[in-house]
Design a protein around this nucleic acid. Structure first.
Lengths: 240, 240
DNA sequence: CCTGGCGCTTGATTTCCGTCAAGTCGACAT
DNA sequence: ATGTCGACTTGACGGAAATCAAGCGCCAGG
């Protein structure tokens, strides 16, 4: 299978959980109906509400997940990078897509066949468990999103986001913003202006800009306190 | 199986999709590990983040699904009535619960065993498909929730909610609010005061109170326009 | 070097909504 | 009836964020 272009693309991803679960034979079967598709920046690859005839593995680039009418106010839920799946839940359940996906930059995707996938689900329970787990994880993310939107101030959401970009548990750190601030702001449910202002207000907590798209955090611990202050006064509402 | 109390409770629900899919034998097996539990008003039956050892079928009463720390600002996602499932996704996927559930009134639930359920999933693909479909549906609901929260005004959310209570496509209609306005307000992501005010502002669009918990809509079509105005100017973003 | 475009920042103003606080309405029991 | 309690409404106020509108910094192209 060395000279098959599809397989050779996919071989970079053979360590992906999806193919681990599928096994050698299953992987080959699924890739038999697969196709690599190019998505220039701004392409809408899946549309919310459309029947899910395919699902996708991101090979290169970044994809934005969004809900609502694409025209008026696209509300960004998340940005996915290489190695992540799009539409697997809808494909597995035989439901329409629950959200839309659009490329932020020139991207490449592996398009996989939903019908084949469903057929394989009937035989491999581990595959089902895998899909359920991915959906469950996304559901949790969505939930966190929603909770933050309703119960935290803009500043706290921004601080939360910055903290998510570093591994450091405390002390100083420096993070790189992975994409345009416009996109980040949308992801956090606010306007770019508001994002900018919020960032400004965090200067008092040791957050300062350090070059294009770089931000220095003087004290991660203090930031973390700020996030959980006010919003979650009580218990161990640590996570979900 | 006539004198078994669990089965006799469940018999009212044997037409439920879950048991249809399970078949006679499967139903019997699952109910072998089941128990009817009482949940007086205010009982938290499942807690977000806890390991999912059970899932539930609502027999009587109403359960509120919520996210976030229960102490500060419980954000209501949905209210479930008899015949609906709670925690089936988490139970099937072996994940912690993605949200909490609390009884709004004295309720009765059928508690089903997650481990047994998972074992049965391995053998019955239709069961898997069923679970995937229910999760997918909930995901869509969540999405709509989130979209509304971010892109619509309070008035529009209220109008949307009222429209969801009637079958009429146009012309006049009269709806009954199914529970306390406090709960409805929470579901719509606003305070009771704001809900009341929003309802007041809709008077200009032919919405008026007609007795306790009853509301008369003079023109459903006009209301519908109002909802999709401003927020969704464009396409057929009808549903998901 | 200048210039135009674009992403980002900043300021002024308005709108929406949450909060606090008072009032009204209706149900139910004494 | 009458009183009381809880749900609902209404008003006044403040804060957060959206909107409108400049201003700034960086980079590509002339």
């Amino acid at each position: 299978m060395g000279h098959d272009p599809i397989v050779s693309h996919a071989v970079r991803w053979r360590r992906h959980m999806l193919f681990q679960v599928l096994g050698e034979a299953g992987t080959h079967e699924l890739l038999g109906h697969a196709e690599v598709v190019d998505a220039p920046a701004g392409t809408t690859v899946v549309s919310q509400g459309a029947p899910a005839e395919h699902f996708y593995l991101v090979l290169d680039g970044r994809m934005r997940l969004q809900v609502g009418d694409d025209c008026a106010g696209p509300s960004t839920l998340d940005v996915l990078g290489p190695g992540e799946l799009i539409g697997q839940g809808a494909a597995a359940g035989g439901q329409p897509y629950a959200m839309s996906a659009e490329s932020l930059e020139d991207s490449r995707l592996l398009r996989l066949d939903a019908a084949t996938f469903r057929r394989m689900l009937e035989e491999r329970f581990e595959l089902t468990a895998f899909v359920l787990a991915t959906i469950s994880r996304r559901l949790c993310g969505l939930m966190r999103h929603l909770t933050a939107l309703k119960m935290k101030t803009g500043g706290q959401r921004v601080a939360d986001y910055l903290l998510g970009l570093t591994d450091a548990a405390e002390g100083p750190a420096e993070v790189r913003l992975p994409y345009d601030k416009r996109i980040i702001a949308e992801t956090l449910g606010m306007r770019p202006e508001t994002f900018s202002r919020a960032l400004g207000k965090l200067r008092g907590l040791g957050v300062c800009r350090a070059g294009t798209a770089r931000i220095r955090l003087a004290d991660v611990g203090r930031l973390r306190d700020y996030c959980h202050l006010e919003a979650a006064e009580g218990r161990d509402a640590r996570d979900a």
